[in-house]
Design a protein around this nucleic acid. Structure first.
Lengths: 204, 204
DNA sequence: GCGAAGGTGTAATAGACATTACACAGGTGG
DNA sequence: CCACCTGTGTAATGTCTATTACACCTTCGC
């Protein structure tokens, strides 16, 4: 089928362009990256970029939103699997660390923040589909545990905020400091987790 | 004295340009702001901008580093004044909230992050003179309290990180979300503070 | 093979903007 | 009153780049 092959070819081009653009946006910034740079790195040609993404802004949209990762599903899954809140939170903390402290992810967040100065809605959409999702999922988890009779030292909303903040603040420090402050060690994470569990009344 | 007057005049120009540039960088972004915009808003002329700041990058440097606020002095002062760690931390939390959640400050951080994509050293310098300073001052406070016999549930470094993170994560959420997630309430802050004091073994 | 349709490469277009060059003004020491 | 020096305003300059226009070429049904 010609359609099939054509689609595949366009898809491959699309992926190549997205991948090139991502690398360039993340290393040079959106404004500093010219579409010429993108084409040079991805192969293909400018006409294809405009056909697939309309314009430079559209390319950024695609780069940012195409493979967005929300912690939401991960949190729901773990909460379903683990009966013990402390165990669940431990696993969630590890996963959040793994995904949020990924340097590529952090670099992308920098690009989003930079662009959000000009385009607040952009930031709003990004935030809604990432951090807010995770927070809500975690909040539901606390509500669920509370409903099951677990005694919690605080409102689910506050606890969820706090938990995410404790983990995420590192990501954000990295976003600002570009890693000059060192990456948190496993010990640090473990300490914070214990601290949280104690404070929330979940320590065993 | 002519020199005096000339200095004053140049100083006023400098302030006017800095102030205009700050507003524009923060609302439109650095790249999107032209030096023409700055001159139009500040009065004066392009020649003066180049005389005072060399070039556009120099203007950004001045905007960011001229009136930088580190929490360091504030923390040392409060620690000196308050004998009780819990009271000191309460005041520090309030102050950090006040200074770090100031929308102007957050907007400036966005500009710094945006620029840091192209210029890592810029981020490093900013970070070293703000967040890291605060962290170190707080770490010293915990060390001092520990030396005075206060029992702490954790290493000073870890506690300082955690405390700052709990407060600062909001600032960073604001930086990303542009305030769409709402500003934390006093209750929220109080909750986190109590949570921390309990966890650190400082609750009375 | 052949014609069409749509992808691809290249060469304008056109506007924006950092930076520089130059000309003016206004107070100043001689 | 005069050269002058320093700060200011304005008008180039030259480059860079998003976007468009157009011509070529590949692929596939027939």
């Amino acid at each position: 089928m010609v359609v099939r092959q054509e689609c595949d070819r366009l898809d491959r081009r699309r992926e190549a362009i997205l991948s090139a653009a991502r690398v360039l946006f993340v290393s040079k910034g959106f404004e500093q990256t010219t579409l010429g740079d993108v084409v040079e790195r991805a192969g293909g040609s400018l006409a294809t970029v405009y056909k697939l993404f309309d314009n430079k802004e559209g390319l950024l949209e695609a780069v940012v939103f195409d493979r967005i990762v929300s912690g939401e599903e991960m949190i729901r899954r773990i909460v379903d699997e683990e009966r013990d809140p402390a165990m669940a939170l431990t696993r969630i903390a590890k996963e959040l660390q793994r995904t949020l402290l990924d340097p590529d992810e952090i670099a992308l967040v920098r690009v989003v923040i930079a662009h959000s100065i000009r385009n607040e809605m952009f930031a709003e959409r990004f935030f809604s589909s990432t951090a807010r999702c995770s927070r809500l999922a975690l909040q539901e988890a606390f509500e669920r545990w509370a409903g099951q009779g677990v005694k919690l030292a605080g409102e689910p909303r506050d606890l969820a905020d706090l938990f995410i903040g404790m983990i995420v603040s590192d990501m954000q420090t990295q976003a600002i400091s570009h890693g000059f402050d060192g990456t948190p060690t496993c010990d640090t994470i473990a300490f914070r987790l214990q601290f949280f569990l104690r404070g929330a009344g979940l320590a065993n």
